[in-house]
């Protein structure tokens, strides 16, 4: 058996049947055999400084410059808004354990007098913007909670979120007692509970 195989191998290749003459194939350009370091750099530079690359880079730059210029142009440097600081009356205007909605419609803040946050009677001002998507929650005094109509987030009187999709408590804005005995809200200051900013004395007025 083995001998027969060997014999067959030694006998040489079988004669191939004659095929009809094939048309000559067009010669393809021979590919570069090996990439040397030098030719790699040449290749890189030929790609980066080729008219192709230059043209696309120029086009992209022009487009980018125009887009950035348009975006910057559309970013106004001035907005017309009411001043961020305003007086909201005396402490005596705010009875204990109540949420005042006096400035909600005009200025978007509640003034809250409660001792539920840390046991101390405090007066603070909550921003009437839901921390979920910025709708205006309403104060439901019967259920003692702020409830957002957009996606149902609920907050305790302290401003802490407890239901719905809101990810964090309502924000406090600055509230100070001026020398004239009047309270002043400063909406340019914001205090976030989750960052520990509610301990900042500018965020509340302690009641005696």
């Amino acid at each position: 058996m083995v001998a027969a195989v060997k014999e067959a191998q030694q006998a040489g290749k079988p004669v191939a049947p004659k095929l009809p003459a094939q048309p000559a194939k067009p010669k393809l350009p021979v590919k570069e055999q090996k990439v040397t370091r030098r030719s790699f750099w040449q290749m890189l530079s030929s790609v980066t400084i080729s008219p192709f690359a230059v043209a696309w880079t120029v086009m992209a730059t022009i487009g980018g410059v125009w887009s950035l210029a348009a975006a910057r142009f559309l970013m106004p440097n001035m907005v017309r808004e009411l001043p961020s600081k305003f007086k909201v009356g005396a402490i005596s205007d705010y009875p204990p354990n109540a949420v005042s909605e006096k400035y909600t419609a005009s200025r978007g803040v509640w003034i809250v007098n409660t001792d539920q946050y840390n046991g101390q009677p405090l007066l603070y001002s909550l921003l009437a913007i839901c921390t979920h998507l910025g709708c205006t929650p309403s104060w439901l005094s019967g259920e003692q909670k702020f409830k957002c109509p957009c996606h149902g987030s609920g907050f305790y009187i302290t401003g802490i979120n407890f239901e719905g999709p809101a990810p964090r408590p309502l924000e406090r804005v600055g509230l100070t007692l001026g020398a004239d005995g009047l309270l002043e809200v400063d909406k340019s200051l914001k205090f976030q509970e989750e960052l520990g900013q509610w301990s900042d004395p500018k965020s509340y007025v302690e009641l005696g």
Binding site: A71, L74, M75, P76, V79, E81
Partner: peptide
């Protein structure tokens, strides 16, 4: 100065 400001032209939905 954020994306929303660019969209609205102001901090709240208003005349801008």
């Amino acid at each position: 100065s954020d994306a929303r400001f660019l969209l609205l032209g102001a901090r709240t939905v208003g005349e801008e």
